[in-house]
Amino acid sequence: MTSARPWLLSAPALVIFAVMLLTPLVMTAVLSFNSFDFYGGIKPTFGFQNYADVLSDSYFYEIFLRTFLIALATTVIAALIGTPQAYFLLRMHPFWRSLMILVVLGPLLISVVVRTLGWAILLGNNGVINDALRSIGLIERPLKMMYTSGGIVLALVHVMVPFMILAVWAALQRQDPATEKAAESLGARPATVFRRIVLPQAMPGILSGSLIVFSLSASAFATPAILGGRRVKVVSTTVYDEFLNTLNWPLGAAIAVILLVSVLAIMVAWNKLVEKRFAGVFE
C-alpha cells in the first residue's frame, strides 16, 4: 500500500474543507481584528480594539455569564434526568424499549424551531401551562416563563437530553450485566446496585454526554432566540444581532471568536480531567 492512496481518497473532502471551512474560519478571525464605523463600514485595519471592547464591557460580561450559566444548568439537569432514564431504558421490556427509543430519539430529527414553537405555546403567559394552573386555581396571575432564562433552560433540556441518554446508554451497554447480579448476590439492594455499581460504570458516558450538551447549549441559537428574544440575550443571539441588525461585523466576529475559544478551552480541559480521572480503570 503506497502512502499516497489515503490522501488521494480523501482529496475531494479535503479540498472542500480547505475552501469551505478553513478559509472562512481564518477570514473570520482576521475580520475580528478589523475596525468598523457606521458610515464607512468595515476597515481593513489590524488591532485588538474589538476584543478590548467586548472584554471591558459589563453588558457583554453579563451575556457571556448568562450563556454559560444556562449551558451549565442545562447540562446538570440533562445529566440528572438522562442518566436514570438511560438505565431504565436498558432494563425495559424490548417492546417498551423500542417505543421509548422512538420517544427519546425521534425529537432529535424534528427541527429545533418546531420544538421551540411547542415550548412557546406551553410557556406563554396565556400558554397551556399557565391556563391549566389557573383553571385549577393554583395561581391567580400567570407565572412568567417566556423571556426568562428558566424557560430557555427547560426547552434546552428537552433538546439536549437525548444526547445525554445516547452517551450514557452507550457506556451502559459496555458494562457486563453480570456485575449487577454479582453485587446483588453479595447483598446489595437495588438502590445500592445503582449507586455503587451502575453509576460509576456509566460515569464515562455521563462525562462525555455532559461535554456534548454543554458545548451545544453554549452555542444554541434557535431556542434562546425564540424564547428569550431581545430581552434575554445570549452570545449567539448577540452575534446574530451584530451581523444582521447593527451590521458591526468585526465586533460580532470578535464575540464569536471568544465563544469558539472558550468552548474549545473548556472541552480540552474537560477531556484532560476525564483522562486523568479514569486512566487505568476504563480503556
Binding site: Q175, D176, A178, T179, K181, A182, A183, E184, S185, L186, G187, A188, R189, R196, I197, P200, Q201, M203, V281, F282
Partner: peptide
C-alpha cells in the same frame, strides 16, 4: 431475594466491578 441468600457466586465473565 438473591441479595439475602448469602451465596458466593463466581460468574462466567467474572463480573468484577471495573471501577474498584
Amino acid at each position: 431475594p438473591a441479595r439475602s441468600r448469602g451465596l458466593g457466586i463466581v460468574f462466567q465473565t467474572y463480573a468484577l466491578f471495573p471501577h474498584m
